[in-house]
Design a protein around this nucleic acid. Sequence first.
DNA 1: TATGAATGAGCTTTCATTCAT
DNA 2: GATGAATGAAAGCTCATTCAT
Lengths: 239, 239, 239, 239
Amino acid sequence: MDTSSRQGRSAPTRAGRAGRSTRAGRATAAGESERRAAIVEIAAGLFAERGYRATTVREIADAAGMLSGSLYHHFDSKESIVDELLSSFLDELHAQYTAIAAARAGPSDTIAALARAAFAAIAGHRAAVTVFQNERGYLATLPRFAYLRTSEEASQALWLRALSEGIAGGELRADLDPKLTHRFLRDAIWVSVHWYRPDGPLGPDEMAEHFLATVFDGIRARGTGGDAPPAPAEVKTKR
Amino acid sequence: MDTSSRQGRSAPTRAGRAGRSTRAGRATAAGESERRAAIVEIAAGLFAERGYRATTVREIADAAGMLSGSLYHHFDSKESIVDELLSSFLDELHAQYTAIAAARAGPSDTIAALARAAFAAIAGHRAAVTVFQNERGYLATLPRFAYLRTSEEASQALWLRALSEGIAGGELRADLDPKLTHRFLRDAIWVSVHWYRPDGPLGPDEMAEHFLATVFDGIRARGTGGDAPPAPAEVKTKR
Amino acid sequence: MDTSSRQGRSAPTRAGRAGRSTRAGRATAAGESERRAAIVEIAAGLFAERGYRATTVREIADAAGMLSGSLYHHFDSKESIVDELLSSFLDELHAQYTAIAAARAGPSDTIAALARAAFAAIAGHRAAVTVFQNERGYLATLPRFAYLRTSEEASQALWLRALSEGIAGGELRADLDPKLTHRFLRDAIWVSVHWYRPDGPLGPDEMAEHFLATVFDGIRARGTGGDAPPAPAEVKTKR
Amino acid sequence: MDTSSRQGRSAPTRAGRAGRSTRAGRATAAGESERRAAIVEIAAGLFAERGYRATTVREIADAAGMLSGSLYHHFDSKESIVDELLSSFLDELHAQYTAIAAARAGPSDTIAALARAAFAAIAGHRAAVTVFQNERGYLATLPRFAYLRTSEEASQALWLRALSEGIAGGELRADLDPKLTHRFLRDAIWVSVHWYRPDGPLGPDEMAEHFLATVFDGIRARGTGGDAPPAPAEVKTKR
DNA sequence: TATGAATGAGCTTTCATTCAT
DNA sequence: GATGAATGAAAGCTCATTCAT
C-alpha cells in the first residue's frame, strides 16, 4: 500500500536488523532482493571507480542491462542505492566490532582484532569501503546519511577504550594521546583501500600483520646493545 | 584544439618556473597575477569544503565578487583553476622534498624531515592538500593532470630511498617492506588534513613529533625487564 | 491504431446503451462490471481531489489494491477511465434534462427543475462533476472527448429554450440576454461543487431554493412603498 | 551577491509593494524587468491555454525564442513564473478592492464597484484570471502559494461586509445568507473568464451591468398589477 | 486476472562556457 | 575587465504502458 516502505529503507535496516528476511515466505522477497543486490553491487563498482556524483543513473542502468527509468522500479533514487550499499556495509562492520569488544580480550589483542576486521572489510568490501572513504564527507551533509557520523563515533569509542585501557594498564606507551593515535591508525588502515589490490600478492591478513607489527613496535630496529642506531635528531626533544 | 594554449598554464609553470612573473611585475601583470591568486585561493576554499565538482563556477565568481562570465577573463576553464592550485602546491612541496633529499642526512633524519615538511604543508596549505586528497582520483584521469601521478612517484622515490637505506644500514627493522611501509606512513600523514584543525591546540610540529614517535618506536610500551606486556596473540606468528 | 477498439467504449455507451450488459449479467461479466465500476469510483475520487493529470495510474492501482499493470486488464488506458466516468455521468444528466424538457412545464418551472436536477447531480456525483468542471478544458481537446462539447450544447439548448420562452411570454424580464443569462446561471450552479459539502448543513434542495430565490427575484429588498432603497449608482445608466 | 534575492521574489513583492523600481537607476533593472515581464506574459498565455502542469518549460522557452536552460537565467523555477504572474495580479486586484472598501459607499454601490473591478480584471488579465481559476486548487497545496488562500479570504471579507451591511440596513433581502450569496456571486463572475471573449461584442462594463441587473433584481419580470406571472411551483415553499 | 519487471519518451533543472556590449 | 544573456548537453527522475509469467 505504501510503496515507500519497500524502497527507502535504510532507517529500518539500521534501526532494527529485523529486516525482511526474518519471516519465511521469501519467495518474492528473495527474487526482489537478488535484483536489488545485483544493482547495488554494480553501482558500487561505478561509485568506487568514478565517484558517486560523477556516476550517472544511466551508467548504472547500462551496466545493469536496463534503461535508466527501470532502475526506479527497484530504488526510488540514486541516493537509496548508496544508502543501501553503505548502511549494509556499516551494519556488518559494526556487528564485528561489537563482537570483538564484547569478547573483552586485553587491549593489545582487541586492537589487533579490530585492525584485522578492518583489513578484512577492505578486502571483502572494496567498493563499499572506497565509496565510504570518498563520499562520506559529501553524503554526511544529507540528513538521510546522519548514520555515517553515528557509525564513526561508535567505532571510535571502541578503539579509544582499547587504547586507553592499554595505556592505563601499561601495555601501551604512557605518552600516547589516545585520540590522536586512533586517528593515525584509523587513517593508515582505511586509506589503504586506495592502493590495496585484492588480486595482488598480499592477503588481508598479511596486510594486517604488517600493519600491526609496525604499529606496535615501530619501524626502528630494536637496539640490542650499545650500538643502537641514533634517534632522529629532535624526535624526542620537541619544544 | 589545445585548450591549454593561452591560459591553461600548468605545463609552463611546472616545466621551469619561467612564467610571466620573471620580469619583475609590471603594473598590469602584477595586478593580473594578484587577481588570479586571489581567485585561486577563494576557489580552493570552496573546492576543499564542498568538492571540486560540487563547486559551481557561479559560486566561485560570487565569492570573488564578480559574475561567472567574468571569471573567464582570468582562467579559461574551471580546470585551469584547480590546475593552478595543485600545480603550484606540488611545485612547492617538491622543492622542499628535493632539498631534504639533497641534504643527504641519515635515513632516520631524512624520514623525520620529510614527515615534518608534510605536516607543515598540511598546516600551511590546508585547502590545496584537501583538494589534492579528495580529487586526485578523479582529476588524474584527465590527461592534463598527468603530473599528479608523476609528482607522487617522485616523492615516493624519495621516501623509498630513505626507507631502503635505513633497512640496509640497520637503522630500521629488517623485516619491513619498504613499499608497504611507505604507503602506511604516507596515508597516515596526509589523511590527517581531514581532521587537523589549524586553530586547534596542536601545531604542525607537534603533530609531526607525535607521529614520528609512534612510527619509530611503536605504540607498545618498551619492556624494561621481565614484566614486558605480552605481545598480542598471533601478531608475529601469522601464517 | 484505434485505441478505443476493445475497451475504450464511450462511443457505444453513448450511442445506444447497447453495451456488454444487455444480456443480463453472466457471472463473469457482472463481476467484471462491478470491478470496473469500483475502479472508476476510486479513480474519480483521486481525479477530483488532485486532478486528472496529476493522478498517476499507480495511485489509482494502489487505491484499488492492485498493481498498476493490473489496471490494464480492466481499462486499456487512463483515458478510458475518465471517459467511463464522464460519459456515464453525462448520460444520466442528459436523461434527466430531457425528461424535464419533455414535461413541457412553464418556463419558470422548467428552469427551476433544471436547476434542481443540477444541484442534485452535484450532491450525488461530486467527483464526476468536479472532474468535469476541472478537466473539461483539457479533455475536450482530445477527439475522443468531443462528446463533452456536444453534451454542453445539448443542455444549453434546453436552458435557452426555457429562458427565451419566459422572456417572450412575459414571465421573465424583457431586457435579458438569454445566452448571457444562461452562462451566468450555469456557472453559478456548477462551480458550487468546489465548495459544496455534502455532509454540511445544506442539502441539495436547500441549495437549489436559495439559488432560485436569488435568481428569480434578485438580492435587493422589494420596495413596498416610497421608501425603496436607492438603486446602486449607475447600474442602469451604463455608458 | 545572493542570486536568490532576485529570482524568488513573490514574498517581497507581496509583502511590501516597495519593489525594485522605487529608487532611480533603473537602467539595468528596467531591462531585466522587461524581459521577465515578457516571459511571464508568454507563459501566462500557455498556462491559461493548456494548464500549468501541462505546459512544459521547453514550450515556454520556445515561445520566448530561447532554449529551456536560458529561462533559468531569469527565473529560478517554473513555479517562480506562475508565482510572479499570480502574485502581481492579486496584488493589483487587492489594491482595487481595498480602495473600493475604503471609499465606504453604501452596500449596493460597494457591491457594484467590486463586481465592476472583477469584470475589468477578467478583461484585462484574462490569462492570469484563468490560471488562477484553474490552478489555484493545485498550487495552494504548495507552501509557497499560501497567499492564494490569504488573498481569497481578504476579498471574501470585503464582499461579506457589504452584503451584511446591506441586509442589516434593509437594502438587501433579509432572507439572504451572506456567505452563500457571496459564493454564488463570486463564482458567477469569475468563471465567466472561461467564455468571455475580449474581442467580442461585450465590454467588461456591459458584462458587469448585465450581471448586476440580474443579481439585484432577479430575472423575473416585475409584476405591475394583478397579472403577475406565477411563481415557479415550490420556489418559496420549500421544506 | 494479477504480478512485477521493464520500456522509452519526456520532464524540470543544472552548469560550464561563449560572446556581444 | 566586467556584464548578463544565452547556449546546449546532460543530469535525476516520472509515468503511462507493455508483456512474459
